[in-house]
Design a protein around this nucleic acid. Sequence first.
DNA 1: TCTGGGGTCCTAGGACCC
DNA 2: TCTGGGGTCCTAGGACCC
Length: 434
Amino acid sequence: MFALVDGNNFYASCERVFRPSLIGKPLVVLSNNDGCAIARSEEAKAMGVRMGHPWHEIRHLERQGLVALSANFALYGDMSDRMMSLIAGLGHTQEVYSIDESFVDLSGIRGNLQARALALRERILQWIGIPTCVGIGETKTLAKLANHVAKDAERKGCYPAHLSQVCNLASLTPGEREALLASIPLKEVWGIGPRLAQDMQAQGLKTTLDLVRMDPATARQRWSVIVERTVRELQGVPCIALEHEPAPKQEIACTRSFGRPVQGLRDLEEAVSEFATRAAEKLRRQGSVTGQVLVFVRTSPFRKTAQYSRSMVVPLLRPTDDTAVIVRAGLAGLKAIYQEGFDLTKAGVMLLDLASKDQVQFELGLDAHESDKRQPEARGRLMQAMDAVNARWGRHTVRVGTVAAAGSQRDWRMRQERRTPAYTTCLEDVPEVR
DNA sequence: TCTGGGGTCCTAGGACCC
DNA sequence: TCTGGGGTCCTAGGACCC
């Protein structure tokens, strides 16, 4: 048996904890550059604001009382940590699935699950200030589905009222359960997106009950192994295990939309250096090395201007976690794909072909001492020192310099934040890019 | 004027090999 | 006139998730 605990309108709820005057008001939290809505209070949803709704299309709603806030991800991460530690008490093992959701394995937990979940819900509300809903079911997919029911029973009233806030599918009679499943649209099932839902409708499936009654082999034949797995899970056969330890990432990305279009290579170099630096930090944090650096630039697909979208994968001579090498690879790729004359609105760096640093050194037959000969000890220590200083004094205190930055004294990120670097290191050329 | 960021997995098709 | 078959690996693109 699994539970899924989920914070309601999480970012909006976090903001309300610190600004109680916003309770009861239509509220949206906006993405990077205030581009679009990424969280909405119930009142904002009632005004017709969609998830991902561009801000410029809903801005006029300010006149009707809509409040918009720029996202504060550090705050949400902190609130999330506190909420997750309370949720951990619900069972023996927990999987933190996203910033606002957590699965809990309830096997071996005795007593009234419904009552336990309600008590947890109250505790989170009282201690942290975040309203939550809890779904309980025999599999993760069913727990997710139950969570959806708990939410929509509360806010829309489209399911029986006694299922609101906490919904335990296992406690329903077969008749109740069937009636409930027959009232849930297919698109609410975890793993069934808009495309699949549409396809299933076209093939005569109407509700979740139809999917529950489907033969798994047929589901595989018509769609994919993923859908087959979903069908089995809906039938109560666990196919997706709880993951207690977050698996190391297989890719690490840092990408951003620009506030306004960028044309010049210099500006792009600044941006790509920044993205590569951030990505390298994430890479070191998880103890990995990368073998390939992907860089991309593109124009806005929403505008009618000339379109341009290119990417390039730059292979490295050997796996590394060195910021300077990764930045140089990113810049080399950028130079190769850059073309003048386009209004570019987004760029990014992705690190691919990741491997554990320890594993790679082991496979190369290097002990720690020998590896210093290949990657001079000083460089590894420099990266460590940079990470430590930046963790203590703020992100941009010490940075790897680029020729462009040093030469022109222009800096994309610094200009955006109206700051100047306290100190910039200058590293010699590193011929690691193949 | 103005449209997020970061992931995972599966599949199809091509390249290549024997 | 005739033009194999099967396996593996890689990549691009699609779909989905939060």
